[in-house]
């Protein structure tokens, strides 16, 4: 029973990571850009949701605001800064987007201060439900799992079944060619970037609702999303989904199981501390293992 609960927690965590990793991997796949400021867009989504929800009293409006604010911030940043970075090497991209993190974090701290904000869930989404088998589980975490699954399905449909998706795939394959065929590449890039930003903003709002909304909340998640992408393979949405679920499960189950496992051959207090230390390293060990076997990631095309 406890294990089932941890599996659900891992699934929820994985879905949240997928929302982050999908945007990152899309932007990398299409534009060849590494964006450290993706975590800032996550933070912007969370703050927009908290602010609008506090003003209007409606969580739903807050959620809509998180999507809109993150997408708008993404589009704005793309047009002002990111656009100039496509022809540059990765080092310039890393530095410029690192600079953006500083600007966004300090800007947000300037407006909202250092104290964390908290979101209140609407009654329709709060409380626990009883699952088949008698397990009590928070409804909102199930909602996050459902949202993640819906986004995965939606992205798959978007990329395989729509005109925009065809252009995105064509842009990945050969950007000069689709430009020559009359596609407005600059606009396509802005749309893809805003789409990734909106997904990050959504993830920020959802996670902000179960934890807290504060400056600097984006970067730990960003680094985990990098681990997800390295495991899944850069540029692959399928890889991002599989990688995210693997990382979510490994982390959650590791933290739940390892201290108990260690307790079988050492003292309880020692087992607890060294067990949790090892559990916190588990996903990176997973990443190292994937690097040893497949350096290009599970679904990556090239190294």
């Amino acid at each position: 029973m406890l294990l089932a609960e941890q599996v659900l927690n891992g699934l929820q965590y994985g879905m949240m990571l997928f929302l982050m990793a999908a945007g990152l991997t899309l932007v990398f796949g299409v534009m060849g850009l590494i964006n450290l400021a993706h975590g800032s867009l996550y933070m912007i989504g969370a703050f927009a949701c908290a602010t609008v929800a506090a003003w209007t009293g409606s969580f739903w409006l807050g959620l809509a605001a998180s999507l809109a604010a993150a997408a708008a911030a993404g589009a704005l940043v793309e047009m002002a800064v990111i656009r100039r970075l496509y022809p540059r090497d990765h080092l310039d991209q890393v530095l410029a987007t690192f600079a953006l993190i500083l600007v966004f974090s300090e800007g947000t701290r300037w407006i909202f201060g250092d104290f964390p904000l908290y979101l209140k869930l609407p009654p329709a989404l709060s409380g626990a439900v009883t699952l088949p088998g008698g397990l009590q589980y928070p409804l909102f975490r199930l909602v996050i799992i459902a949202v993640g699954a819906a986004v995965a399905l939606g992205l798959w449909l978007l990329i395989t079944r729509t005109r925009l998706g065809i252009r995105i795939r064509a842009g990945e394959a050969d950007r000069e060619m689709i430009g020559a065929l009359g596609v407005d590449i600059a606009r396509l890039y802005t749309i893809v970037f805003a789409l990734g930003a909106a997904l990050a903003g959504l993830a920020g709002a959802l996670v902000g609702s179960i934890q807290s909304v504060q400056v600097g909340m984006g970067e730990p998640v960003l680094i985990l999303a990098f681990v997800v992408i390295v495991i899944g393979g850069i540029g692959s949405i399928k890889g991002a989904l599989v990688g995210a679920l693997l990382v979510g499960m490994t982390d959650t189950l590791g933290k739940a199981v390892i201290p108990g496992l260690f307790a079988r051959f050492m003292e309880a207090s020692d087992a607890n501390t060294s067990g949790s230390a090892v559990a916190s390293m588990l996903i990176y060990i997973l990443m190292a293992a994937v690097l040893l076997v497949r350096p290009q990631g599970l679904f990556g095309a090239r190294a």
């Binding site: 590494i34 680094i223 390295v230």
Partner: peptide, 13 residues
């Protein structure tokens, strides 16, 4: 074992 953008992300991780 990796290069380019992977190397950045892996060292960070």
């Amino acid at each position: 074992r990796t290069s380019g953008v992977y190397f950045i992300m892996v060292t960070l991780a």
